[in-house]
């Protein structure tokens, strides 16, 4: 217990000063206020736990019936009341990986440009435009994807199938337009601003001397970026990419609208297949009995588990390099 006058004399936000150490010595107003804000912080912990508890609660029936085997089950048959979710997990992963393949080079390229090459007057507006792309809701990307992107993808599919139809990835039906390819492209557009914004902050957190040292030795700017900057922050960039992956895995509306919702194992880039989120979104209103609903919530629980693991991994990588001072929200 600290003394009575601690509050008045201590420098405030310093890490060591804790009002919590001496609630008895504070005046009644302070005590009430402290407990109120502590209560709201406690509420955040309760809310997070409720989230997990309710997911388990909602999916309990399906967990009891199918156990952990639900994850590698390949049947989804509401008529026979048999559910397993492996194809949607694979569908989610393939779509998200495709999105990463498209988005990562563009995002990191854009981040390097904004952080290093762009003239000073252009940096602010560029960052702002990129972040505006992140502010557009998923359902809008879905709408745009459905009416603009899908017809374009259909043309590309027909062309690819005509010329490279022997290649297994392009062997699927080319008639729909909706499918893995369209979903991958729309996801790529959606995660680009996130990866760009975080990578930009990470690249800017590299000490200037790194680049200046290379330039002083006679390197060109590109050489300095490639050999001094990117290696220096590769851990943080990996974090940014993984964060983008986490976002792609959980994206719902756009993928539901352009992914072509069929429950099947992926065989080619043109297949219309479900991802986990799209299956939940599109089947929930048709789920007529409780085991069906419970199974859909179980899919949500699996999705939750995957995104949480991936995001914690990303947070650790990003925190490591930048102490958390990056991102879109701030």
């Amino acid at each position: 217990m600290a003394g009575r006058n601690t509050i008045a004399t201590s420098p405030l936000p310093a890490q060591k000063t804790k009002l919590s150490d001496h609630p008895a010595s504070a005046n009644w107003g302070d005590r009430i206020f402290y407990n109120l804000v502590r209560l709201s912080a406690l509420f955040v912990i309760i809310l997070s736990s409720l989230l997990v508890i309710e997911l388990f609660h909602g999916s309990w029936e399906a967990i009891n019936k199918f156990g952990i085997g639900f994850i590698w089950g390949t049947t989804w048959d509401p008529v026979k009341e048999e559910f397993g979710t492996l194809p949607t997990i694979i569908g989610t992963l393939v779509k998200s990986l495709l999105a990463l393949i498209i988005a990562v080079p563009i995002s990191i390229g854009a981040a390097v440009y904004i952080a290093i090459f762009a003239p000073k007057w252009l940096r602010g507006p560029l960052s702002y435009l990129v972040e505006s792309l992140a502010a557009i809701p998923s359902v809008i990307f879905g709408l745009w994807g459905l009416f603009v992107l899908v017809p374009i993808v259909r043309v590309i599919q027909i062309w690819l199938k005509g010329h490279f139809g022997w290649f297994p990835l392009f062997s699927g039906p080319a008639v729909y337009g909706v499918g893995v390819l369209a979903a991958g492209i729309i996801l790529a557009i959606m995660i680009t601003p996130i990866i760009t914004a975080i990578s930009r902050d990470i690249i800017r957190s590299v000490p200037k001397s790194q680049m200046e040292g290379m330039l002083a030795l006679g390197a060109t700017r590109w050489e300095a970026i490639r050999k001094a900057i990117l290696p220096y922050c590769r851990v943080g960039l990996a974090g940014a990419v993984i964060l983008g992956l986490g976002r792609a895995l959980g994206e719902t509306m756009a993928v539901t609208m352009v992914g072509g919702n069929a429950f099947a194992l992926i065989t080619s880039l043109f297949d219309p297949v479900h991802s986990m989120a799209s299956q939940i979104a599109s089947e929930f209103s048709e789920a007529t009995y409780s085991l069906y609903i419970s199974s859909l919530i179980y899919v949500g629980l699996v999705l939750f588990g995957i995104t949480i693991i991936i995001n914690i991994l990303a947070q650790i990588l990003i925190w490591k390099i930048s102490n958390g001072k990056v991102g879109i929200i701030e």
């Binding site: 809310l47 949480i308 947070q315």
Partner: peptide
Amino acid sequence: DVLTAVPSIVVGLA
């Protein structure tokens, strides 16, 4: 930080 990353559809289910 982790809560911002929870897919919104999962929040809906909970």
